[in-house]
């Protein structure tokens, strides 16, 4: 069994790399995620070949363009008469990095007007790989931002509650009990229901993030409150108060630094939950809408019989969700074990 610390590092690095990929989504994706190609709906992934039909070996891999099968409706063939070599570092559609920098350099691609479709297309003929990577941007960021929101709220309210007590504490705890009594999906949906249905992508994103963040603040808040309660009774806090330390000083210097452990473990638990929450919302149609890709709304297509039975490539977002969940799970599990081990000392 690997040491816990190693696992934390491994999981952390893996996740870090994923996030970097997603940040540079435009680079890794060959095409603009909104670019439609109505001629090729639900086309299967292009196969990569090294040996062409005449038997010659090429060092540079290539693909055949996908064309509709003239004999079978809805099926596709490879057009073996053309070879499209795959090139690295090509120029293509332009994109923005972090909304600021512009570039049109892509990791790989083929010559126009042919397309390389490593993960097939969806109903509108949009390249799934590009949508996957851009969708990752949305889904992962949503999860992170919502988690920050939740943790921030939880920290603030929990710290005030724990430190000052009194009526604020009483009412805050009642409120958390209320929130925790409601099944979270219903709460999420209820809040979403009372907000406008049609919103611009940016608004939708912010909206979802806020809703998810607000629903989830209770657990961190309670943990922080508990921790603050025990921390403020410590000997060194009393002594510091004896020197004339103000509340703010005590919080800043002695109490809040103790919270970092809790915050980290909670973050590792909350972020994947929130990524899933966003995906669920989008899946149900209440999150991000067309044309913005999100892993959730990409999976929504699978609700159709035809798609789920024959278009296996549409499952790609599900795989990525599992991978991310798994990585975060390993991270949080190891963090948890590390923490209980150090508490026992």
């Amino acid at each position: 069994m690997m040491k816990q610390k190693t696992r934390v590092w491994l999981a952390g690095i893996f996740l870090g790399m994923l996030h970097v990929c997603v940040l540079f989504a435009g680079f890794f994706a060959p095409y603009n995620p909104a670019a439609q190609n109505r001629d090729l709906p639900y086309a299967p992934p292009s196969k990569i070949h090294f040996v062409d039909p005449s038997g010659r070996f090429h060092a540079r891999p290539f693909v055949h363009p996908t064309i509709p099968d003239p004999e079978n409706y809805d099926a596709y063939l490879e057009d073996k008469t053309h070879n499209c070599p795959v090139r690295l570092l090509v120029r293509g559609d332009s994109y923005a990095i972090g909304g600021v920098f512009h570039s049109n350099l892509h990791l790989f691609g083929v010559e126009e007007p042919n397309r390389i479709l490593l993960m097939g297309t969806d109903a509108y003929g949009r390249d799934q790989l590009s949508r996957l990577v851009f969708g990752g941007q949305i889904s992962l960021t949503a999860g992170l931002v919502a988690a920050i929101l939740s943790l921030g709220l939880g920290l603030l309210l929990g710290a005030i509650s724990g430190y000052y007590g009194g009526w604020f504490d009483e009412s805050a705890m009642r409120v958390t009990e209320l929130f925790m009594a409601l099944p979270w999906i219903y709460l999420l949906l209820a809040i979403r229901a009372f907000l406008p249905l049609q919103v611009s992508p940016v608004q939708a994103f912010l909206l979802i993030v806020c809703v998810i963040g607000v629903v989830g603040w209770t657990r961190p808040a309670r943990l922080i409150r508990g921790s603050v309660l025990s921390a403020k009774e410590r000997g060194y806090v009393l002594v510091a108060r004896g020197f004339g330390g103000s509340d703010w000083y005590l919080l800043r210097r002695h109490i809040l630094p103790e919270m970092t452990g809790i915050l980290l473990t909670q973050a590792a638990i909350l972020v994947p939950q929130y990524i899933l929450a966003e995906a669920t919302l989008s899946f149900l149609g209440l999150g991000l809408g067309e044309p913005t890709p999100s892993w959730g709304n990409m999976l929504a297509a699978l609700q159709q019989y035809k798609v789920i039975s024959s278009c296996w490539w549409m499952f790609a977002p599900a795989v990525t969700l599992v991978i991310i969940s798994g990585a975060y799970f390993v991270l949080s599990d190891s963090l948890h074990r590390l923490e209980s081990a150090s508490n026992q000392q």
């Binding site: 410590r234 004896g242 004339g244």
Partner: peptide, 17 residues
Amino acid sequence: FRSQIQLILQDSAGALN
């Protein structure tokens, strides 16, 4: 007055962060 009167406790580990 805080500077004039000082209190030292038993539990040294708890009294020091």
